[in-house]
Simulated scan of single mutants.
Amino acid sequence: MPPTPAEVLAALLRSDPGRPRVTFYEDTPGPTSGERIELSAKVLGNWVSKAANALQEEWDLAPGSRVRLALPPHWRSLYWALAVWSVGATVVLDDGEADLVVTDDPALATTSPAVLVTLAALARGATEPVPAGAMDDAKELATYADQFSAWDEPAPSDPAVTGAGDAAYEDVVPQRDWGVGVRVHTAAGDLGAVLGTALAAWSLDGSLVLSRGPEPAGGRGSRLSAEGVTQEA
């Protein structure tokens, strides 16, 4: 049986916690344009643990719960998705009913309960007013523990993702014919596709290079070569 997302992350931490597993390029015009963020398995795992602890401790989320991720393809979206899967809940990728909304849109964060995510890498607090009742990801997430233990485990048939490529926990990790240790690049504009690509690469002890936004001047060729990309998705 294919691994669950939580098992994939645990395998990365056992394999090589210091190796880069996510490299993110922000090419979207705006104040964060030009950002390059690199996360090792250990750093990614810390972010996931903090977010998963918040999901359990603040909102009692567990198998059967639903979390809407109204976020763009981004490194922060990756740790929130893994956190949802760590507590055994369902990632909702459309505007369907949910127990919690995690979003970078202040207008959507007025839905209670909600988490307002600030995408800027060095943000220590939201740059927009935080609606009443919403958690400020940039300010508050760091207060949660770096270690996580789930209260309950999802059943293999429990829904892991819905709203785009619906999948249960037993088949949410795609099986691709890529080599072990693959370094995959994607510039997909769809969060569901990016999550699938990331899980597929990580399940092969690989890593993800994610570009968000229009192709940079001069193209991405030199970037992909410098990053040692071996697969385009």
Rank of each mutant, 00 (worst) to 15 (best):
T110D: 07
P174C: 12
D166R: 12
P131H: 03
A98W: 02
P159W: 05
L141W: 12
D166F: 04
W85L: 04
A120C: 03
L108C: 08
A107I: 02
D137G: 03
L141P: 02
W178I: 07
R124K: 13
A168I: 01
L93F: 08
D99W: 10
L122I: 02
W85K: 09
V115Y: 08
V102R: 07
V180M: 12
D105T: 01
G125I: 01
G96S: 04
T118H: 06
T143M: 04
P106Q: 04
V173M: 11
L108E: 15
T143A: 15
V84G: 02
A120R: 10
P113R: 07
E128S: 11
M135P: 05
P131V: 06
D104F: 12
V173R: 03
G165A: 04
D105G: 08
P154Y: 01
H185P: 02
A167F: 10
V173S: 01
A120W: 04
V102A: 08
V87C: 12
V87E: 05
L122K: 11
T110I: 09
V101P: 07
V92L: 02
A164I: 09
A155M: 11
A107T: 06
D171M: 10
A160Q: 07
L119V: 01
T103A: 04
V115I: 03
G163S: 11
Q147L: 13
H185N: 06
V184W: 03
E153Q: 10
T110V: 14
T162C: 03
D158R: 06
A83Y: 09
A120F: 03
P159A: 13
A83L: 08
G163R: 13
T143G: 05
D166N: 14
V184R: 10
D94L: 08
R176D: 14
P156C: 06
G181W: 04
K139S: 15
G88P: 08
L108T: 07
V161Y: 05
W178Y: 11
L119A: 09
V92E: 14
P159K: 12
A138N: 00
T103L: 09
G179Q: 12
A164Q: 06
E170R: 15
A187F: 00
P131Y: 06
A98P: 12
A134T: 00
A109T: 14
G88E: 14
A81D: 02
